[in-house]
């Protein structure tokens, strides 16, 4: 891989669910350290696109190359590629039978064969970062939604991924908890993490995004820097979407 190559290269992908076309000829490059925010109405294919990047969704045609690895090349091991891709879900999906600390340490211990003491050290520093160190031995049910989502972010970070994928990380949260999760994401962005974020938080998109991608009907309709995107949208569908949401 060349230093100048994008860390994610999505090339003309299509995705069908039966007859239904969920992704329509989508191409997108994400550079190392870049933050891409994906916007669009419900059902436009945002989640499908994001989940295609770590192959939770298999595509029907096209190609996706992550950090030099073609997701569909015969010799590639998808599990190793996924270690480079942290993912945060709308519904947190913390391991319910594990404590907060164990949620963070499980994958590094089992997959990287890292020493338990070292992993816990890392885990505690991550819990510090997301502000939940004092809950390390709690179970997920004992936490609020905002706390759970912060743990979920820390869990993904514990694998020390190169890229973080977020699928509407604040959509399942009570309004008063959205801020605490966005704060963590903003910090992460400032530290230079490569991020692809599906969200409806326009403030976050304006503040953090290098590129805003607008999707509709499975296709990328418009892609622009946030100031251009919000102040000068070119497409009528983008304008309509922004009018409805702002």
């Amino acid at each position: 891989m060349n230093a100048a190559d994008p860390i994610i290269r999505i090339n003309r992908i299509n995705k069908y669910f039966g007859q239904f076309k969920a992704l329509d000829n989508v191409s997108l490059d994400v550079e190392l350290g870049e933050k891409v925010v994906v916007l669009g109405p419900s059902g436009s294919g945002k989640s499908t696109l994001l989940r295609a990047i770590n192959r939770l969704e298999t595509i029907s045609s096209g190609s996706i190359v992550v950090d030099g690895h073609d997701l569909y090349a015969p010799g590639e091991n998808i599990n190793t590629i996924r270690m480079e891709l942290g993912m945060v879900f709308q519904s947190f999906n913390l391991f319910k039978h594990k404590t907060v600390l164990e949620n963070l340490t499980l994958a590094p211990i089992k997959l990287k064969k890292m020493d338990k003491g070292k992993v816990e050290e890392l885990a505690f520093s991550l819990l510090d970062k997301v502000g939940i160190r004092d809950r390390a031995d709690h179970y997920p049910v004992q936490l609020s939604g905002g706390q759970q989502q912060r743990v979920a972010i820390a869990r993904a970070l514990a694998m020390e991924p190169k890229i973080m994928l977020f699928d509407e990380p604040t959509s399942a949260l009570d309004p008063e908890m959205i801020g605490e999760v966005l704060d963590v994401m903003v910090t992460l962005a400032r530290e230079g993490m490569t991020m692809v974020v599906v969200t409806h938080e326009m403030g976050f998109a304006r503040e953090v995004a290098d590129q805003v991608v607008f999707m509709d009907d499975g296709a990328i309709v418009e892609m622009a820097r946030p100031d251009m995107f919000f102040d000068n949208p070119r497409h009528s569908r983008t304008k309509l979407f922004l009018e409805q949401i702002l």
Binding site: L56, M83, L85, G86, M87, F95, L111
Partner: peptide, 9 residues
């Protein structure tokens, strides 16, 4: 999905 996304098979 959470488990797979971490790299578990």
């Amino acid at each position: 999905e959470a488990s797979l996304s971490l790299g578990f098979n």
